[in-house]
């Protein structure tokens, strides 16, 4: 088979050049992310509809979340996005040591995020706000500056709060699951980097994992204000 360029070990047989291979994997990754947008998109639409229908209930429910923890986690995740971007930059420069160092930093930040998430989940468990048969909620309107409306007087107000928590757990849970997968990918990258698999010419796995990680960050960028920051004034 007459290939224009000499075969490098990282060039798959069905591609003609490293450029073609790199552009293909990049386009493939972006298509995957577009798919992910719609995957989370379904959740956001459902959440949006219920929030539209039950505004006061969702406001009251959201006020039981801790803005401090949420904001802290936002900062942690943005930091991890920075370290991830720097890991990709190190890969572009062919700096193996820095790739590993930044990836380890990203993993640590991600673990910190998940740890905080665990604390929050535990709190909700103690407050019996975990959705399902054990869910218990007595509305206490004096505590929050929510105006009394037809919605707050709704006999099923607690049910609507339950709905909020169903979405809170499904959405943050799905997000956390994506983070766990991301951590797995980064561990795999560190092993590959240790074995000198990456070079200035070939670092697509680092770059693709980077894209994935930034996407996870973006999901949180929307989750935080939409779930935590409802009716805080």
């Amino acid at each position: 088979m007459a290939d224009g360029q000499a075969h490098t070990p990282n060039l798959a047989h069905h591609f003609d050049s490293m450029d073609q291979q790199r552009e293909s994997s990049s386009l493939g990754m972006w298509l995957f992310l577009a798919q992910e947008v719609m995957f989370f998109g379904g959740l956001f639409v459902a959440y949006g509809v219920y929030r539209f229908k039950y505004q006061e209930a969702f406001a009251v429910a959201s006020n039981h979340l801790s803005v401090a923890w949420g904001a802290f986690n936002t900062v942690v995740l943005i930091c991890s996005s920075l370290t991830m971007a720097l890991a990709v930059r190190a890969a572009q420069l062919g700096d193996k040591k820095r790739i590993i160092r930044y990836l380890v930093a990203t993993i640590l930040l991600a673990s910190l995020f998940l740890g905080v998430k665990g604390i929050e989940y535990t709190e909700k468990y103690h407050d019996q706000l975990v959705p399902g048969p054990t869910f218990q909620y007595e509305p206490d309107f004096d505590q929050y500056a929510v105006p009394v409306t037809a919605e707050t007087a709704h006999p099923n107000f607690a049910g609507h709060v339950h709905l909020f928590y169903s979405f809170y757990f499904v959405m943050t849970g799905m997000h956390a699951l994506h983070m766990v997968i991301g951590i797995g990918l980064m561990i795999w990258l560190i092993v590959k980097a240790q074995r000198d698999r990456f070079s200035r010419e070939y670092y697509a796995p680092v770059e693709m994992t980077g894209l994935y990680w930034h996407f996870v960050d973006i999901v949180w960028i929307f989750l935080f204000p939409l779930v935590y920051l409802v009716w805080r004034h």
Binding site: E23, S26, L27, W30, L31, L33, A34, Q35, E36, V37, M38, G41, G42, F44, V45, G48
Partner: peptide, 19 residues
């Protein structure tokens, strides 16, 4: 490349339309 712009935009635009 432009196709990447387009792909990134498509996901968000489709989400907005669905919503």
């Amino acid at each position: 490349a432009r196709i990447i712009w387009l792909t990134a935009a498509a996901g968000f635009i489709w989400f907005v339309l669905m919503f």
